[in-house]
Amino acid sequence: MLALLVGVLSSTGVYLLLRRSVLKLVLGIIFLSNAVNLTIFIAAGLVQGKPVFVSEDAANPADMADPIPQALILTAIVISFGLVAFTLALKYKYFSLSDTDDLDELKELEE
């Protein structure tokens, strides 16, 4: 089920990336990075209903979820969050310079 979701997310992401509009590029980035995060999650093995944090006296590895993929995903989310914010700022700048959302319009600008 999740694997299917990854497939859908990443194909949508790629499609959006290939569009000319900058806003869709941002959306594509978000989709793709979420797809990859889910991939990590699945690849590292899903466990249901087990917390990462347990109290000190009950520390039995079988009762815990593997914390590393969660840490990896958290880091990846933070990074992609920064990237998206930066791309949005870039888009604003782009829009205020060219009054358009279309990447190809810029070709005329530079001549």
Binding site: V36, N37, T39, I40, F41, I42, A43, A44, G45, I68, P69, L72, A76
Partner: peptide, 11 residues
């Protein structure tokens, strides 16, 4: 790269 790392870790 990230997806590669995920799969590598899973294995």
């Amino acid at each position: 790269f990230l997806a590669g790392i995920g799969i590598l870790y899973g294995k």
